[in-house]
Every structure is written in structure tokens, then in C-alpha cells.
């Protein structure tokens, strides 16, 4: 049996390999060094690469992330970790007004090759200020690239691609996926950002899913298959750049699309992708493009309320049935 790795270790392997290959790659964040990361997601890097490349920052997200941008402009390739996605708000000025705009402002003469990696995801009782995913916010900002990996093998190759990319890349890791295993892929394999994949072929409906929603879509597709409905699952992997060609090609075959995300529905990424499909594949559609997202509320901690927040396989299957 081939080797499998967890999502967490997929990202960690990518960091080891890229830091070994390129001395300009550095890691910054709270407790990423000697402690090995609060989720053990940076374990061993400090011992391997030392304090000048694996840098424990104070709890100063704005200043420390701004310094990562300055370091990137000065020739480094920082990977900056924000422990919980919610804390990204503290970096927003640096992200939006500095990192995202430097290439444009300099007319292409300066670049900010950095990765902001952060965790997200409702579901561990972490509540309103430790659960949110800001990928939709970030995707609205010109100049940023957005990656939302769905499994361990992808997490590894996409992190390697993100580190090698010359633009600021936001890498959103769903903590619910951290322990999930997937088949390891070749160590040297990389993938250009912006290439999606078809995970399950199907003739009747296209399910567009990122991150944890890929697993939800798979469970729904299995249930639907028992009813004779064959769903195709497309994982765009990156929200910016978005693999529009792959999505449109799928929808033109299936004639139906359901777009889903685990972040709040309103003004979210599902709206953008659904609008794009509506604009570019309208004549192929047999039903309005449908969307599913989290409820538009902060995440509650209660064990009765929290499971109601994000789309479930049952909700996905019900939404598909309503389209047929």
C-alpha cells in the first residue's frame, strides 16, 4: 500500500522541502518556532533551520505581517502564519494596502512573494472569534491569490506552488481536515496555481466545492448515486486565479451547477462563481445555478447549534434533488 500523509504533515513536508531548497524561504508566526506550532503544524522546522529562518513573533500580527511584506520586497520568501483566520483582521491594512498593491504600484518592478497561511473552520466549539474563514474577503482584493486546499496531497503541492509564486498568496487550511489522510504524491510534484480538478465524474449536475466542502460533496454524491443522479465534483483549489475553463466545461456537460462553501453565504465566493457560470454558460443551463453556504451568523460554540451552521451532505443532496 502506498504511503499516506495527513493534511497537516502535507503542509509541513512542503515547508521542509522548500526551506531546504531555497535559503530565502523563512517562516514567521506566533509559536511556530521552538513550540512547533499550536497544532504541531511546524514541528521540527526550528530545529532544522534555526531562529533566523523560523521566527517566533510576538503577538503583533499587524507589525509582524508588515515586516514579512518588507522582507519579501527585500528578496525573501516568507511564509507567515496567522494562527486562527479570525486574527487576519489584525493584518488587513498590511494585506490590502501594502502586500496586494506593491506589484501594481511599482509597475511590476517590485513583488511580494509571500504566503499567509491560516486556519479556519466551524466545528470544534471554538466559537465566534476562532472559526471564521475570510477567503471571500481576500478574494475581493485585487493583487492577492487565494488557495483553499481540500486534502493532504493537494495541501502539499499547493503549498509548494504558493511558496514559489511571486505574488502574495493566502493559504486557507481547514482545521477539520488536519488529521485527514490522503495518498502522498511525488516530492517534486508542483502545480501552477489556478488549475482545478474533477474529483468525481458525473453527467447530471456539477458540484463546485472547495476545502472541507469536497468531502461533503462526495458524501452527497454517493447518496444521490443510489437514486440514479450522477453528480460531478469540481474542486477549483484556487479562488484567485479561478479555473473558469474547467468549471464551464463541466457545466456545459451537466447543465446544472450547485456551488457550495463553508463560509457565510451572503456575498460569498459562491455568489461570484454562480454569477460567472450564469454569465458564461447560461445557454447550457437547465436550472438556475444553486448555492449553499454557512448561515449568516457568527459561529456559536453550542453543541446543538454549531452543527447547523455549515452545509451538510443531506442539505447538498436536497438542493440537487430540487434542481432535477
Amino acid at each position: 500500500m502506498a504511503e499516506t500523509i495527513t493534511f497537516r504533515d502535507g503542509v509541513l513536508e512542503a515547508l521542509f522541502e522548500e526551506m531546504r531548497a531555497d535559503p530565502s524561504v523563512i517562516l514567521m508566526g506566533e509559536d511556530v518556532g521552538a513550540a512547533g506550532g499550536v497544532f504541531q503544524q511546524t514541528k521540527g522546522l526550528f530545529e532544522a533551520f534555526g531562529a533566523r529562518r523560523v521566527i517566533d513573533t510576538p503577538i503583533s500580527e499587524s507589525g509582524a505581517f508588515g515586516m514579512a511584506i518588507g522582507a519579501a520586497m527585500a528578496g525573501m520568501r516568507p511564509v507567515f502564519e496567522v494562527m486562527f483566520g479570525d486574527f487576519m483582521t489584525l493584518c488587513m491594512d498590511q494585506l490590502v494596502n501594502q502586500a496586494a498593491k506593491v506589484r501594481y504600484m511599482s509597475n511590476g518592478a517590485a513583488t511580494v512573494p509571500l504566503v499567509l497561511r491560516t486556519t479556519m473552520g466551524v466545528g470544534a466549539g471554538l466559537g465566534p472569534q476562532h472559526s471564521q474563514g475570510f477567503h471571500a474577503w481576500a478574494a475581493h482584493v485585487p493583487g492577492l491569490k487565494i488557495v483553499v486546499p481540500a486534502d493532504a496531497a493537494d495541501a502539499k503541492v499547493l503549498m509548494k506552488a504558493a511558496i514559489r509564486d511571486d505574488d502574495p498568496v493566502l493559504f486557507f487550511e481547514d482545521r477539520q481536515l488536519y488529521a485527514a489522510r490522503a495518498m502522498a504524491r511525488d516530492a517534486d510534484e508542483t502545480l501552477p496555481l489556478g488549475r482545478g480538478r474533477i474529483l468525481r465524474p458525473g453527467r447530471d449536475v456539477t458540484l463546485v466545492a472547495i476545502g472541507r466542502m469536497v468531502g461533503v460533496a462526495r458524501a452527497a454524491a454517493e447518496a444521490l448515486a443510489r437514486e440514479g443522479i450522477e453528480a460531478e465534483i469540481v474542486d477549483p483549489r484556487c479562488l484567485v486565479p479561478l479555473d473558469e475553463a474547467l468549471l464551464l466545461e463541466s457545466v456545459r456537460r451537466t447543465h446544472r451547477a450547485l456551488v457550495m462553501d463553508a463560509a457565510p453565504l451572503r456575498y460569498g465566493v459562491t455568489a461570484e462563481i454562480a454569477a460567472m457560470i450564469g454569465e458564461k454558460a447560461f445557454d447550457w443551463l437547465d436550472a438556475p445555478v444553486a448555492r449553499l453556504g454557512a448561515v449568516d451568523t457568527p459561529a456559536p460554540i453550542s453543541r446543538s447549534l454549531e452543527p447547523l451552521v455549515c452545509p451538510t451532505p443531506e442539505k447538498v443532496a436536497a438542493a440537487v434533488r430540487a434542481m432535477m
Partner: peptide, 21 residues
């Protein structure tokens, strides 16, 4: 820089890069 104080971390980060290198 159009943001008051915006250049401060950029310079400190460039110094960090120089030190790392």
C-alpha cells in the same frame, strides 16, 4: 506610502531580510 505608518514595518522587514541573509 498613503497609509500613515505604513512604511515602518516594510523597513523593519527589509532589515530582517538583511539580517537573515
Amino acid at each position: 506610502n498613503g497609509i500613515v505608518g505604513g512604511g515602518i514595518p516594510l523597513a523593519a522587514g527589509a532589515a530582517l531580510a538583511a539580517r537573515a541573509r
